[in-house]
């Protein structure tokens, strides 16, 4: 197992290097000058030139790349070009919020999606199945900026159960929970819709297998057949979807963050892109990529736990 983990971590190094290079190139290919973004529309060319020199943007591209690579590999992501704040401290300030939202959505998604998916598969083409499929379709069809506003209108404005502004105090667990309920439920329900559909189709495929029929013929109780023989074999595609979805949630929950006014990685990435904050974008992409590598690693390890053949 340790060798397996090490192998996976080593395989991540070229991925990270490729991402570093791609990010460096892409942020410079995109038109838009950070100096103009910082100095505003009245800045004269000499002021723009002075700021570009200060930010190191007047250096040849290879020199900028070498400096960026050297600093990144030593764990120094530098400071935001716009605010001057250390990138790691900005990321550190929002990462707990992102992790909170990701994990809570994951819990909501799995707790609802897996049982409903199994239930729908066991009642194929009956009312329960149709209802589950319809609900999951509805869940997938509503973008967060619609469902989020609806949820805020009902639970924050009408019933006043939760706040609209979702930026919680990190040192206050009750406050964090209070401000997590609505966004995690909104995002978790979308995730549940995905998981329901994948679980249902995986279970349907597995329940038709010979070993299931054999287990039933041997007199194994139905509940045990479903949970032990059925679900375990159907879990692989579900874990894959969950793993992929976590990756998406970490950086792409920007709409949820904006609607519920939560800080998060997605929101910082969009802000940095708008302001052409090269250093911030580079740092964020590296951190994001690292998180994705970790999530993929955990997903792969989970495969190993579910199916011992994967480890071989």
């Amino acid at each position: 197992m340790i060798l397996y983990v090490l192998r996976r971590l080593l395989a991540a190094i070229p991925t990270l290097l490729a991402v570093l290079t791609l990010v460096f190139v892409i942020v410079r290919i995109v038109p838009g000058d950070p100096a103009i973004a910082i100095l505003g529309d009245r800045a004269t060319p000499d002021a723009v030139a002075a700021l570009r020199a200060k930010l190191g943007l007047d250096q040849p591209l290879w020199a900028q790349y070498a400096s960026f690579l050297g600093h990144s590999l030593s764990g120094d992501f530098g400071r935001s070009m716009v605010t001057g704040r250390p990138i790691l401290s900005d990321v550190g300030a929002v990462l707990p919020h992102t992790i909170d939202l990701t994990l809570a959505s994951l819990v909501v998604g799995c707790v609802i999606g897996v049982p409903v998916g199994i239930w729908a598969a066991l009642h194929r083409n009956r009312a329960i199945d149709y209802a589950a499929r319809l609900l999951s379709l509805i869940g997938l069809s509503f973008p967060v900026f619609v469902s989020g506003i609806f949820v805020l209108l009902v639970f924050a404005l009408h019933w006043r159960l939760f706040p609209v502004i979702g930026n919680a105090k990190l040192d206050d667990p009750l406050d964090r929970l209070d401000k997590l309920v609505l966004p995690a439920s909104t995002l978790g329900l979308v995730m549940a819709a995905y998981i329901t559909r994948v679980t249902r189709s995986a279970m349907l495929a597995v329940l038709g297998e010979d070993y299931i029929r054999t287990a039933r013929a041997k007199g194994v109780p139905w509940r045990r057949v479903v949970w032990r023989h059925g679900l375990r074999n159907a879990a692989m595609p579900v874990v894959t979807v969950v793993g992929l979805y976590i990756g998406i949630l970490i950086g792409n929950s920007v709409l949820t963050e904006i609607v519920f006014n939560r800080p998060g990685l997605g929101k910082i990435i969009v802000g940095a892109l708008n302001q052409r904050d090269y250093t911030m974008l580079q740092g964020l992409m590296v951190i994001y990529c690292f998180l994705i590598v970790v999530v993929n690693l955990v997903t792969d390890l989970t495969y190993g736990l579910i199916d011992p053949r994967v480890k071989q």
């Binding site: 506003i149 805020l152 209108l153 924050a156 404005l157 006043r160 706040p163 609209v164 502004i165 930026n167 904006i258 609607v259 519920f260 006014n261 929101k267």
Partner: peptide, 19 residues
């Protein structure tokens, strides 16, 4: 001084008395 980029969320927060 709260940074709330979404117009809809800011309006809801205002109506809710949070700002």
């Amino acid at each position: 001084y709260r940074f709330i980029p979404s117009d809809a969320s800011r309006d809801l927060a205002f109506q809710n008395g949070e700002i």
